[in-house]
Structures are given as C-alpha cells and as structure tokens.
Write a protein that binds this DNA or RNA. Structure first.
Length: 869
RNA sequence: GCGGGCGUGGUGGAAUGGUAGACACACCGGACUUAAAAUCCGGAGGGAGUAUUCCCGUGCGGGUUCGAGUCCCGCCGCCCGCACCA
C-alpha cells in the first residue's frame, strides 16, 4: 500500500458513510459528559455554498472534533436561515414559488455541506421557513406582546412611488428604486417594534461580561447603543405657530452652550410639518428632504440643506439671546428630540452649514497654545483634552478639560432650572414589520371593534398561503384574495389579519436555542436550553458584529422574561472570521474573467495570465472579496471534486489568521494537496518500518528518539492550545514542523530501529490525531492503516508528558544598545549576575564595546540581555 | 459623513514590549530519471563584501523605552458596518 497515492475521491464518501452509520455525530441531551456547544452562523439557502461557508464551517468543525476528542459532549448542529428577500426575487424572475426555490436550495446545499465531512448532528436540522419552526416564533411574539415588550408606532420606509411598494435599503440605488428607477420617498407607516431601547442600559452593561468576544465587536456594540450624558433643555420660540411654545432640544456638548449660532429641526419634526401647512415653500423644502432613502449613510452623505424658517429661538439662560431656526436635512427625527443646536466652531457639520448659510461662528474654547479663531476646520478635541475656555458659563479663560467644563455647565443649568442632565441612547427600537410575503406572519388580527389583538395560541400557526402570485410589485400576502379576511376571535365580527411579516433577524435571534430541542412542542425546553446554552463558541462573519448579535442578545433576554430560557447572554465565546478573497481577471475588452477560464504562468518573477480557451492575454487585477459580479469565485464543489474536502478544509485553515481575510490561490490548494500526500507517504513508510522491526524491543530509546518525542509532545501541546485559542494557522504550522521532524526521523530509524521505532510510531500516531480535526477523512484512513482500534473521530486526544515540554538549556540573545550582536547558551534560570559576567567575557562583545564604558546591563531572565553603552 | 478594523520579504503570514521574517507558497540550485512529473536535499528580506562582517528594513512622520512590528500622537491607503441584504 505504501506506493499508492492517497485517493480522497474514494476515501471521503466512504468515511462519511461510516460516520453516518455509526451515528458518530448524533448528540444526546442526556449524555452525562460536560456539554460543549459550538455553532457556526447558519447559512441563507442561496443555492450553492461558497468558500466563505467552507472557511466558516471548517473552523467550527475543528473546534467540534477537538472538544469531542477532549471528552466533551459536543452539540454541533446546522440549519437554514430560510426566509428573506432573494426567494421573492427568484419567484419574480423564475416564476417559481419562494418555498419551492428555497427547499430545492436547501437540498442542494445540504449535499454540498455533507461532502465536506462536517461532524454535524443532522437530526437537529431546522429551517426557519417551515411552520414547525415559525409557529414557535409566533407563539413567543404573542408572549412578548402580553409582557409589554412589543409596540406599534409610526416609522419611515423607502417608498417607490412608481411600483407603489416598500423597498429594502439594498433596493435603493443612488436614491432610486432598483426596478422602477423612480426617486425614492420616505413614507410613514404604522409598524411593529420590539422595545429594545428599554433594554439599552442592560445590553450595554452586559458587554462587560462578554470577555470571550473580540474587543472590536464589543466596542462596535457599545458605540451602536451610544449612551451619552448630556443636557436636555427647551428653547423659547418667537413667531412659531400656535401650540408651539417651546422647542425641546438635547445636546451632548453642554460646555458649548455659549457657542450656538443657530438651531435646526428635522423636516418631519411636528413644528416643521405645521409650518409646511401654511407655507408652500416650506412644504416643498420638507418634501425635498423626504425625497431620499431612509439609510443613515445616505442621509449623512447628502449635501447639507437648510431652510430658514424666520422663527427665532431664545436661549434658556438668557431669553434676550435669539438664534435663527432652520429646517435641515441632516437632523434625524429618530434621535433625541429631532432638534439640535448648531455650534459651528466645534462641530464640522455645523461649521459647513454655518459657512454655507453665512452664520456667525463663536469660538467657545481654543487650544492652550493658540489664539487663532476657527477657520474651515472645526476644533473638536477629545473630551479629556485640556483647552482654554473663552466663551462659556464658567470662569473666563479657565484651562480645563471639556469633560470638566461639561460637568460644571450641567450643574449650573440644573441649579438655575435652565435644563437638566440626561442620559440618552442612540439605540432605536427594533422595527420588525416587513411588507413582504416570504417571512414569518405576525400573528395578529385587526378588529374594528376589539382593536389589535393577538391570534389565540390554539389557532397557531398562522401559516403562509401557498397560492400566491408575484405578478405585481408589493406584498403578495396583502394581495392574496382571501387570506387576510378572518373573523375576530373575540367578537366574531369580520376582521383583517396583519399582513406584515417579521424581519428575518427575528428568525436568527433564537435558532441557537431551538437547536437544543429541535422537535419540542414548545419553543424551547427550558431546562434543556439552559443545559446547553450559552453557546460556548459561536463563529461567523464580522458583518454581523452589530445587528444579528445585538438582536440575539436582546431576544434571549426577552425569552427569559417570557419564561422560555433562563439565561441572559446567548453566546459565551464569539469569533469573527475574515472573508475569502481572490485575484480578479479582466479580458482585453474589459470584461471580468472567471479563475477557471484563466491559465497562469510564472516566468522567473513575472506572473502572466492568458485565457484558457482563446489564449488572449488577461490582466491580473487586485485581490478582492469573492463576488459573482467580479466573477472571482471558486466553486467549492469543483475543489472537492478535484482535490477532496480535506484539502479545501486544510487550505482554508492554514496560512492566514482566521480573523483576517484569506486569499484563495491555486498554488495554495496544491500545496495543501501535496501535504496530504506527504502525510500518507509518511504513514506508509512508518508501517513498513514497524513491520520490519516487529521483533525488536519497543521501549529502548536513544538521543534521537528522545528528541523526537520532545517535538511530538510539544506539538500535541501547542496544537491543542492553538485550537483552543482558534489560532488554526499556527496549529497548522506546528503540524508542518512535526511532519518535517517525523519524515527526517523515519530516515534515521533504519540506522537504529531498535531504539527509534517506538518514538516514530508514537509520533506518527499523534500526528494523525492532530490532523484529524482538520482533515478527518485522511486521518481516519491513516488511523485504520496503522491498525489503531475504532475511529479516530472517537479517539481521545493524546496525553502530553509535561516532563517532555521543558528545556533545560536556553539560547540567550545578547544585544548592545538594542542591536543583537551575539548569543550564549545557558542553563535555564541562571542567575543574572552570572549571565552578566559571561556576557562581558565574550570576545564578540568586547570587540563591539571597544573599550567604551558599560552604562548598564539589562538581563531579562531566560529571555534576553541588553548591554547599554 | 459616523463607528470599527487592517497594513511585516516575490506571496500568505510568525513574533507574552525582548534574536523581525517561524511555517508555508512561489522561485533558484542539486540528487533521482532516457526525459518529464512526483519525491528528496539545499539556498534565499534588500544592499556592500571572497569572507569574518557591516549598513538598511514591519504603510508614512513624530514620541515613550535599555529595547517598538507590538505602546502613544498625527497622517496615508484598503476593508467592514450604518438599523428593510443576510
């Protein structure tokens, strides 16, 4: 067998079948071993898996298989985030029902995932589009309504006035509807909300406990929640319509209250609307402000526009101080009170606005070392920076930090009754209404007599009708001829079903809990959920750093409040992996060319490309995230067919740090494939050596054997800690090093089999176990060839002998003035004084010192020596 | 625009504030072969030198430190998120 190449196409399906037959990865809730829950973000069933999935699921599988080897009862499930817009788009484009399209996609993708050899418990598979799943979501929605966690209120949507439909943000391109091309308008709709802002403080505080989350994700969530401490006050109004006596405002910069030169309100502020009613010019300006998408990025990047209302606001500290009131397109009604003070000197946006409308600029404070007034760049120092206050409510000329000035101003305003200190959050309530068919129906009935009432739980699920058409734009559920007509469950009068469906973020906010009891008749089995949760290790893309993860944290608390779960935080450990990128290629005509159609040649250091079929020269472009539009995608199916799943998995784990982007290259895959063969050859060679030395004593060992055992145990130790720390690329590097040592050692065994064969045999056995989480099929094949009992998937992680991890001699680098000049070998823990003496007696050091006096010697024990002259 | 991140040889990258470039890919040389592939052995950040060796070097500019890829300040470039894509 030693001469044969390893054939993944033959072995991979074989082992997949063996694992399936043995139910190797089916997890029992009753298993007494310590539980470990590893979860990768479940995929949207787009039809085919992509390399990003391969990377994500390879990482999760390493973790799952590793902890299984460490004796944990591992839960590693998989499901489908199956509701959402693309299914409706497909329905329009291909005339297939969203359900049919989605279920076909799930079948296809499941087969692809299975060909990867993932250690997934498929008996727990769920799809969010099935009533078996979403009925529980409806039932929890009702529980949450009854617990006061849900509300209905007005909120803005993107409205396409031609298609007469609501658009998602991604369907708005440059302010226009993607199909109609019409200018999009903001329109108010009454919608359903989860009151997440009530929980802002708790969600913020909870972040401190998430110590196994990346710091950047916690920072992003903190900023998203956006707690600020500021001043709430009221401007007086002069010349405003009846009923508008004061204008409530909130500012985070109380220290600048001597600096405002204007005030501004949002175009949909009640005052702006009232003004518009009596003034066509204002009405037109307001309408113009509403003619853009609802996305914050679009609003903030739009040109700053204002309209001077002619109304004056009066300052709370001095009613004789009047400022003009503008309506401005960059003021958001959703944040604070929908009104702002404009302090141009210390806010760039306000400064741009002031310059454009020729408003005065008042410097409130200046840098300590300058008296220059603000020009075209606002002076916005850190709150902890000391500045000199020239125009404020405290001591003139005070040199203090902005924070100190804010605190003093807040105290003064509170004392004089001019305003009050207030905490404010940026976080808005979670709007869950979607005017779409392919989502979980909101289980509510609108009755003219009884009002808006939940569907009685005995009538759940509210199932989506199958017979829908997509021949006109808009909500197919709303267009259905009969579905929405029901009798009121309370009074029996004819009533109307809610035709909004839920945001798909709701579906993904509790699936991790459903996996713990996927067939339960209630949303969860609370004791089982609490047994498994929180998820020990959650793995997915950074793009979910805020919304999905914050909503899941909220929903878990809401589930706790309604008795479905006993925990607050769903994910104990979080890991965000980077994207998969690839070079881009362009033809002479400028069209994108797919990698499969490109032939790459390397001549010396030059890389050239030409078209595989036509032979025309191809330009190699930048490395970018794989996307269909740039055609720089590689199909996992083709990779698995050519190289096998293990190679694809190995390559995705090697080289690049998992949190960073990884570049897919043909050369890299081939390298991974060669390594697979190298391991297989090593195993074959080892088996031959074992057979030849069958009669020799196995316990003997010489120095070579001892050195090998050290590398083996060190590798086992390091790979384990690298996997636990999710440093897969370093684990791979350790395995490469061990393999190199084993190959070298195999060559030496022939010279002295009696003393070395045992060490080699042990080392190769350990190597197979180290690669098992990453290349499980190859590992099983080697394991069985080596004659080991059972499956490597069931084998316990190899034990490490701690005595083999310590070195008694250390190579100490010696620096002179921070530059490395020599090194000495010392015994571990040698006293600093002795090290100093030995260093100074070195010829190289004496030569470099050249008689100059030594100022000081820094000795870091067992690490480094620095001689300062 | 706002928030977050990243930047190290030809390439992917390694490096608790302590020998910059581990490990791998690509490349070059050698062995094996009729030959090629595969495999095995060796070389290699850049520059100078036969060589001992020396100088330069972690996007750019400053700073802290005995010592900075790592910490601080200011730039530049790229990427992600911005609440109805998932």
């Amino acid at each position: 067998m030693s001469g044969e190449r390893y054939n993944p196409r033959e072995m991979e399906p074989k082992w997949q079948q063996v694992w399936a037959d043995a139910k190797s990865f089916v997890t029992s809730n009753d298993d007494p071993r310590e539980p470990y829950y590893v979860l990768e973000m479940f995929p949207y069933p787009s039809g085919r898996i992509h390399m990003g999935h391969v990377r994500n699921y390879s990482m999760g599988d390493v973790v799952a298989r590793y902890y299984r080897a460490k004796g944990r009862n591992v839960l590693h499930p998989m499901g489908w985030d199956a509701f959402g817009l693309p299914a409706e788009n497909a329905a329009i484009e291909r005339k297939t029902h969203p359900g049919t399209w989605t279920r076909q996609n799930i079948e296809a993708m499941k087969a692809q995932l299975q060909s990867m050899g993932l250690s997934i418990d498929w008996t727990r598979e769920i799809a969010t589009c099935e009533p078996e799943y979403y009925q529980h979501q409806q039932s929890m929605f009702i529980d949450m309504m009854e617990a006061g966690l849900v509300t209905r209120k007005q909120s803005k949507v993107n409205w396409d006035p031609v298609d007469m439909t609501v658009l998602a943000n991604e369907q708005v391109i440059d302010g226009r509807g993607w199909r109609s091309g019409a200018l999009v308008e903001q329109r108010d709709l009454t919608q359903w909300f989860f009151k997440i802002s009530d929980m802002a403080e708790e969600l913020l505080e909870g972040l401190d406990g998430l110590t196994e989350w990346p710091e950047k994700v916690r920072t992003m969530q903190r900023n998203w929640i956006g707690k600020s401490q500021g001043l709430a006050f009221e401007f007086g109004l002069k010349g405003a319509p009846a009923g508008f006596d004061t204008l409530p405002v909130y500012t985070t910069r109380a220290d600048t209250m001597r600096g405002p030169t204007f005030a501004a309100i949002a175009a949909d502020h009640p005052l702006a609307r009232a003004l518009g009613e009596g003034n066509p010019a204002i009405a037109e300006f307001n309408a113009q402000c509403m003619r853009m998408g609802t996305s914050e990025a679009a609003i903030e990047q739009a040109e700053k526009l204002g309209y001077d209302t002619g109304i004056k606001v009066t300052h709370p500290a001095d009613p004789s101080w009047e400022l003009p009131l503008f309506i401005a397109n960059f003021v958001l009604m959703d944040y604070g009170t929908g009104a702002v003070i404009g302090c141009p000197a210390h806010d760039q946006r306000d400064l741009d606005f002031a310059r454009k409308y020729d408003l005065p600029v008042i410097d409130v404070f200046k840098p300590l070392d300058s008296d220059e007034p603000v020009g075209d760049t606002a002076f916005v120092p850190l709150k902890t920076q000391k500045v000199r206050y020239v125009q404020w409510f405290g001591e003139p000329g005070a040199e203090i930090t902005c924070q100190e000035a804010m605190d003093q101003t807040l105290a003064l305003f509170e004392k004089n009754g001019w305003g009050k200190a207030q905490a404010q959050y940026r976080l808005r309530d979670w709007g869950v209404s979607r005017q779409r068919y392919w989502g979980c129906p909101i289980p509510v009935i609108h009755c003219e007599v009884c009002g808006t009432i939940p569907v009685p739980k005995k009538n759940l699920p509210v199932v989506l009708p199958e017979d829908v058409t997509f021949d006109k734009p808009g909500n197919a559920l709303d267009h259905h001829p009969t579905w929405k007509h029901v009798n009121c469950p309370q009074c029996g009068a004819s009533a109307r079903r809610e035709t909004d469906t839920m945001d798909t973020f709701v579906d993904s906010s509790w699936y991790f809990a459903r996996f713990t009891a996927p067939h339960a008749e209630t949303p969860t089995e609370p004791t089982v959920a609490d047994h498994w949760l929180p998820v020990d290790q959650y793995i997915g893309g950074v793009e979910h750093a805020i919304l999905h993860l914050l909503y899941s944290r909220y929903f878990t608390r809401a589930m706790k409040a309604t008795g479905h779960i006993g925990i607050d935080e769903p994910f104990k450990g979080l890991f965000t992996q980077g994207m998969v990128t690839h070079e881009t290629y362009k033809s002479p005509k400028g069209d994108w060319v797919a990698p499969v159609d490109v032939l790459l040649e390397t001549i010396g250091e030059d890389r050239k490309a030409k078209h595989l079929q036509s032979g025309e020269p191809i330009t190699i472009g930048s490395v970018e995230k794989m996307s269909k539009s740039k055609k720089n995608v590689v199909d996992p199916d083709e990779i698995v067919a050519t190289y096998g799943a293990d190679t694809a998995r190995w390559f995705m784990l090697s080289d690049s740090p998992p949190e960073r982007d990884v570049q897919w290259t043909e050369a890299g895959v081939e390298g991974a494939s060669r390594f697979q063969q190298r391991v297989w050859r090593l195993v074959g060679e080892t088996i031959e050596l074992i057979q030849q030395s069958a009669d020799t004593a196995r316990e003997a060992a010489d120095q070579e054997a001892q050195a090998l055992r050290k590398s083996v145990h060190r590798a086992v130790h390091n790979v384990a800690s690298d996997i636990e720390g999710l440093r897969f690329n370093r684990a791979v590097a350790q395995i490469y090093e061990l393999t190199n040592a084993l190959v070298r050692s195999a060559g030496l065994v022939a010279a002295s089999p009696a003393t070395r064969i045992a060490a080699l045999e042990e080392g190769v056995g350990s190597l197979v176990q180290l690669i098992a989480p990453m290349m499980p099929h190859l590992a099983e094949t080697c394991w069985s060839a080596l004659g080991k009992p059972g499956l490597v998937a069931d084998a316990a992680w190899p034990e490490v002998d701690p005595a083999l991890l310590v070195d008694d001699e250390i190579t100490l680098p010696i620096q002179v003035n921070g530059k490395r000049r020599a090194e000495i070998v010392v015994s571990k823990g040698l006293a600093a004084a002795e090290v100093e003496q030995r260093v100074l007696s070195l010829d190289e050091i004496a030569r470099i010192l050249d008689g100059k006096p030594v100022k000081k010697i820094v000795v870091v024990p067992d690490r480094i020596v620095n001689v300062v002259v």
